[in-house]
Computed example of a mutant assay.
Amino acid sequence: MAFDEGHATLMREELADIEGISEKKMFGGLCFLLHGNMICGVHKDGGMARVGKTREAEALEIEGVDPLSFTGRKMGGMVDLSEDLLGDHTRRAQVMALALTNAQSLPPK
């Protein structure tokens, strides 16, 4: 599994006070879920977040956020997070808030 444990620790800290969080190895990295719905994850080059299609444009305005494309094809509602963004508490928290809003809007799995 190729991901930076330091980045995973940052994500864990962001989500520490939220009930219903779990972790799952997926996409060659580590994902964090709320009641079974993906919030975010870390991979070898940074991270990703599932902000949802309605919040994607807002997320893309944050420095260090790009459309997610693991296979060369854009994944709607998902964004890629640079290593620089993961290290910046303010920007990371902005993206996490969008991703949590998305996950909270979904029924538990």
Rank of each mutant, 00 (worst) to 15 (best):
D66N: 06
E83K: 15
L60D: 02
M11P: 00
L68A: 09
F32C: 00
K109D: 14
E83I: 09
V95L: 02
C40M: 10
R55S: 06
P108N: 13
H7M: 06
M78G: 03
R91D: 10
E19P: 01
A99V: 07
I39T: 02
M11F: 14
A59M: 03
L33N: 07
G28C: 12
S105E: 11
A103G: 10
L33K: 07
P108G: 10
A97Y: 08
V42W: 04
E23D: 09
M96D: 04
R12C: 02
P67R: 13
G20S: 06
T90H: 12
K44R: 13
V95D: 00
G47E: 05
L30P: 02
H35P: 00
E23S: 09
V51F: 04
E23H: 07
F70E: 01
N37K: 15
A103L: 10
H43Q: 08
G20R: 09
D88A: 01
H43N: 11
A97E: 15
P107Q: 09
G46C: 11
A103I: 10
G36F: 12
T9S: 11
K25R: 10
S82N: 08
G72C: 03
E56A: 01
L85Y: 06
E19F: 04
T9G: 07
D88I: 02
M48V: 07
V65Y: 03
L106A: 05
C31S: 14
T71C: 03
H89R: 12
L33R: 12
E58T: 13
G20I: 07
N37Y: 09
D45L: 05
L68W: 14
E63Q: 13
G87A: 11
R12A: 01
K24C: 06
N37Q: 14
S69Q: 12
A59D: 00
I39W: 04
K74R: 13
T101Y: 07
L34I: 03
G29Q: 05
D84M: 14
F27D: 11
M96A: 06
D17P: 02
S69R: 14
L81Y: 04
M78A: 13
Q104N: 12
T71R: 12
V95N: 00
N37P: 02
A93C: 09
P107G: 05
P108I: 13
M26Q: 13
A59L: 03
H43D: 04
L85G: 00
E56H: 01
P108R: 14
L30E: 07
H35M: 07
A2T: 08
D80T: 05
G76M: 10
E83C: 14
M11I: 15
E56F: 01
E56K: 02
S82Q: 11
L86N: 01
V42L: 05
L106G: 03
